[in-house]
Design a protein around this nucleic acid. Structure first.
Lengths: 238, 238
DNA sequence: CGCTGTATTGACCTCCTTCAAATGCGGTGG
DNA sequence: CCACCGCATTTGAAGGAGGTCAATACAGCG
C-alpha cells in the first residue's frame, strides 16, 4: 500500500483524484529485513526508493568506524529523489527495522513530474522539507543538551508520523535500538540509556517494547523548545 | 561582478557562451555592512539573493538566545533559491563580514530555468550541494572533536573558495569572529580560541588578521579525515 | 587618551565518554 | 523444562573534553 506516501504528498500539494489514482498504480513495495543496505555510498542511483513501512536511515561512516545518522526515514519518505543530479551517492541508506520499500524507475518519476504538476510540486516540497529537517538537526546537535536533544527528536517524529497516519495522541512505534538513537543525535549509547531514563523520571516520556509513550505532548514540546514550523505543514496534524 | 556566481555554476554544468553572456546581464550587487540581516525567519521570500562577495550565514535563534549557524555562504552562493515552495523562511540569513549581494527577481530565475537548461541544471546542482554540505556538517558536529571539527570546516571552505577563485595554495581570507566560528560548529567562543591555538601549535594552520594560513593542506585534510567527495566537484580544483 | 569590541587566559565545574562488567531476555537445542 | 547463547539494555567508576564565569590584554578608532 502506498497510503503513507500518498498521505505525505497530500501535505505538499492539493492532489486531485486523478493524481491519487495515478499514485495508486505505483509498484508495490517489497520486504527488507532490519539492518540491511538500501543504497550504498559511491554508487550511482538508478531508481528512486520509497519507504512504505518501517524505519530506515541515511548515514555516513567515518574512517575510525563511527557512524553518524544524518536522517531518519519513516513511511512516506523518499530516499534519493534528486540524487541522480549529483552523480554518485555521498552517503549510504539502510534499514533500521524491517521495512517495506518501493522501487520506482526514474522514468516513473519523470512521468509524474510531467503529467502531474501537483505531484511534482509535492515531490519538490518533500525534498525541501527533508532539507529543513537536516537544518533543524544541526541546531539540535549544536545547541541542545542530551535530554532536550532526544526530546526534540521525539517531538519531530511524532509530527512526521502523524502526518502519515502512524501513532496516536499518546505515542508511536519506535523500533530503533539505543545505539541507533545515539548515532542519530551524536551521543553514545551509554549516555542515551541514562538520558532516556532521566526523561522517564521527569515524566516526559516512556520507551518500552519498541513503543514510545508520550503522556503530554505539549509538555514535551515546551521542554525542548520544539517549534514545528520547520516541517512546513499547511494542513493541521492532530 | 558576477564572476564568483558564474564560476560556481560552471562546476554544475557545461555552460555555453550564450549562458555566460546571459549571466553577465544579471543585475549588479549592492554593498551591505557586516552583521546585517538579509532575510528574516518567518517572511515570505520574494527575490533570490546571491552572495557576490564576503561571508554570510544561515542561522536559527533559540528561545534562550543562543544562535546556531546552519550554513556559511561564500561568494557564488544562493540564499533562497527554492525557499518560495515552502512558503515562509524557517531560518534567517545575515552577513558576517561586509558583503555585496545581488537580488534577482523570481521572474529572472524562472527565465533562466526555461531559456537556459544548462543554467537550470547548474542551479539544481548548487542546491543539492548545499544540502550535501549540511549533511556533512551533521557528521562534523556529531562525531568529531573540537580541533578536527574546525580543521574540517577549514578544509571545506578552502575547496569551496578555490572553486570560485578565492584564496590560493597557502590560505584564504577568513573574516569571521571567533564567536561566529563557535556558533557554526557548535562550541563556545572560549573553546574556539583554545582550539585554534592548539591547531596552530600542531602546525596545521594559523589564523591572524582575518586571514587563514594553511601550510600543508594535505596534512590538514589527513588530520580531520576530510574527503571532498560530498562537494561533488566534477572539475578539479587546485 | 579613553572607548569599544574582540581575543586571550585562568579556575572551576559538569556533561558526556570510555571501559568493563552485569543484567535481562528471547530463541534454540538438549 | 532447563541450560545456554547472542544481543541489547543497564549500571558503575573514572577520566576528559568542553562549558561557564570573570578578569585581563589588546587593537582600532574617535
Amino acid at each position: 500500500m502506498f497510503s503513507s506516501f500518498i498521505c505525505k504528498l497530500e501535505h505538499g500539494a492539493n492532489l486531485t483524484d486523478a493524481d491519487r489514482t495515478r499514485l495508486a498504480y505505483l509498484p508495490r513495495g517489497h520486504r527488507i529485513a532490519a539492518r540491511q543496505p538500501i543504497i550504498t555510498k559511491g554508487t550511482r542511483p538508478e531508481n528512486v526508493h520509497i519507504v512504505l513501512d518501517g524505519f530506515a536511515c541515511r548515514y555516513k561512516m567515518l574512517r575510525n568506524g563511527k557512524r553518524q545518522i544524518i536522517a531518519l526515514l519513516v513511511p512516506g519518505d523518499c530516499c534519493d529523489l534528486n540524487a541522480a543530479i549529483l552523480g554518485t551517492m555521498d552517503h549510504s541508506i539502510a534499514t533500521l527495522s524491517s521495512c517495506t520499500i518501493a522501487i520506482l524507475p526514474r522514468a516513473t518519476i519523470l512521468d509524474l513530474n510531467e503529467q502531474h504538476p501537483r505531484i511534482a510540486h509535492a515531490l519538490r516540497w518533500t525534498a525541501l522539507v527533508d532539507e529543513a529537517i537536516a537544518r533543524e538537526w544541526l541546531v539540535n546537535m549544536g545547541k541542545r543538551d542530551a535530554s532536550r536533544r532526544f526530546a526534540h527528536l521525539f517531538c519531530e517524529l511524532r509530527v512526521r508520523l502523524r502526518m502519515v497516519g502512524i501513532g496516536n495522541e499518546d505515542g508511536y512505534p519506535f523500533p530503533l535500538r539505543q545505539e541507533d538513537m545515539a548515532d542519530a543525535v551524536g551521543l553514545t549509547s551509554v549516555h542515551t540509556n541514562r538520558t532516556v531514563q532521566s526523561l522517564r523520571e521527569k515524566g516526559l516520556l516512556r520507551l518500552q517494547d519498541h513503543k514510545l509513550h508520550i503522556p503530554d505532548a505539549m509538555q514535551l514540546e515546551e521542554y525542548c523548545d520544539f517549534d514545528p514550523a520547520y516541517l512546513h505543514l499547511h494542513k493541521r496534524v492532530d
